[in-house]
Design a protein around this nucleic acid. Structure first.
Lengths: 344, 344
DNA sequence: CTGTTAGCGCATTCAA
DNA sequence: TTGAATGCGCTAACAG
């Protein structure tokens, strides 16, 4: 292996420009107090030599890293990918680098909070979709940097998300409006969580039914791990009831996809026999003609990233940003059959 | 904002341990030449004080960053998310950090290669799904670090991917085996690319048909931007032909999803009227009962990450790793109707 | 507006 | 096996 050629240093360009390193440094970072002519000369020389400051040296000396750590449970799921894209887009325009920390299963999670691999490596941490419990909060505090959160907030950090309760109400209220009375919900549980915090969407389900004077039926509320396959199985369970629901509200679209599949296999028609509605407006929801509650995940990512940047620059940041959601009605929802309207 | 408390430095733990910083440094990194007792004492004290070395200082002094830059076109698409997950998993076990650089549209791309934001920030670069042209290769070389690639390789870097040609043959040969003669392909083009390199899957399509003695029909080969919506539109175009195909091979599953939707809306039955097969084995392919060619994307990510790490540690790395693919037959493919077997 | 002076926290010589 | 000395490349006071 050939040795790396020594990189161009600031000293080099200072010499070439005939000024001190201090001036060079100021000129390069566009700090005030440099003659325009000098500044331009320095910039040109730096450009010619394709010079870039060493982040290590700069960080060591200046105290900041120019990096933001993003802690996230998944990279392959659409929701998190979209979120990450939003985050990345604002960080990159701010010239900040994005350091990725994925914590999927409980082991990785425990490991992250025990070892804190982000220590001394980032200026701020952005926690995405991970409810941080008290113990974890204590550990996280050791990193000693600003912390913000997005999409699933159960800790005292500034955060951005949708209003899950409102989203749930939009879906369930619509089913009620269509005339459904026997409405099921397939909720998602995180198998990693010992005690999952109150789910806004599930709360919306129970309250909406309650307000409509409908007695809750435990059989109609099923909780499964996230994903299309568990969604399909849950739907099968609902179909095996003596009196199946006429409509199903799922925690997210990808669960609904599974549910739709079960219905198709069972030879049932949607929405004539059963209505289905999800949450997300996943890109494939349109392909599957699934009614859903739209949320702009990318925008959540952008907003959360701005929070993190705001904390960094010391600016005032809102403690909580709730982004709006709205119904997207497609072909998977409709009124129940007449015979179902007035249950025996 | 309260001032950050000064962090624990190596000098602190050296003092506590009653040894020099040199010894402390050696002990901490388990370098040879330290008495076991000393080493253990140092480690214990470091543990107690929750000390971690400053990567900035260590990097500045030692010369490496401990970071790998990943250049990737999308984060929200399943393929890239899955790839990233594979990459992240091996890097994290190696104690390396993952710096994310997304280059989506041509502007971001040009910007990346012009500014080279990864300069001096990483020990190696992993390029995912981005064909790097000659000019870009020259620029990339300026970063002066090891480079590896994954999934879409058109540059002289060690890389991992599937054999696109083989994957295409698996799909098209199967359609031929079923008895189809009038087979269409919906290929994906990257609108960012001026001259897209030869697509292995498209090549497989033309060669397979050629070997079967089938004359190519330009109308049956359509190229569209990636995604379900373009896929749906392409399918519509194929259906508008005087003599539509009896089977369609799509560049990827997500294009096939769109195609399936068009067929459903058109009231056509799959596979009785038209067969559809994709590539990827996307998680939702099963939900949609789509036949496809399976590839293990996560494993590609892992393999590529190992390449990058290998380059770093100076170990010998294979120039090219091709991962296997295999047919997954589901309900979207079947023999053509008898009347179609012998076209007039 | 510009230069001088000190470090930032650590890894390496080289001696001992 | 250990320690002292030196420098990695840059920023931040402080003077001028």
């Amino acid at each position: 292996m050939t040795e790396k050629p020594a990189a161009v240093t600031m000293a080099d360009i200072a010499r070439l420009a005939g000024v001190s390193m201090a001036t060079t440094s100021r000129a390069l970072k566009n700090a005030p107090g440099v003659a325009p002519a000098t500044r331009e000369r320095v910039h040109r020389i730096a450009e010619d030599l394709a010079y870039v400051v060493s982040p290590e040296a700069s960080g060591l000396s200046g105290g900041s890293t120019g990096r933001i750590g993003v802690v996230i449970p998944s990279l392959s799921r659409w929701f998190f990918g979209e979120m990450l894209e939003g985050i990345e887009s604002v960080l990159s325009t701010r010239g900040l680098d994005l350091l990725l920390y994925r914590i999927g299963d409980p082991r990785e999670r425990a490991d992250f909070f025990r070892r804190l691999p982000a220590r001394r490596k980032v200026d701020a941490v952005l926690v995405v979709g991970v409810p941080v419990n008290d113990t974890e909060q204590e550990r996280l505090a050791l990193i000693n940097v600003a912390i913000a959160a997005a999409g699933g907030q159960y800790a005292p950090y500034p955060y951005t998300s949708i209003d899950d309760y409102a989203a749930g109400r939009q879906a369930v209220d619509h089913l009620l409006f269509l005339g459904h009375r026997r409405i099921a919900m397939i909720d998602a549980i995180d198998p990693n969580e010992t005690s999952w915090p109150v789910d806004g969407r599930a709360l919306a389900y129970t309250e909406a039914l309650g307000e409509a004077g409908i007695t809750l039926d435990d059989d109609l509320f099923v909780r499964v791990p996230w994903g299309p396959v568990p969604g399909a199985e849950a739907m099968a369970r609902l179909l095996s009831l003596r009196e199946p629901p006429t409509a199903v509200f799922t925690h997210s679209d990808e669960i609904a996809f599974g549910a739709l599949r079960t219905l198709r296999r069972a030879g049932l028609r949607v929405p004539e026999d059963i209505s289905v509605i999800g949450v997300d407006d996943h890109p494939l929801a349109e392909q599957l003609d699934l009614s859903t509650v739209h949320q702009d995940v990318r925008q959540q990512g952008e907003s959360a990233a701005r929070l993190a940047v705001g904390l960094l620059t010391g600016g005032p940041v809102p403690g909580q940003t709730l982004l709006p959601t709205h119904l997207v009605l497609r072909g998977s929802t409709g009124p129940p059959r007449r015979s179902d309207r007035r249950p025996t």
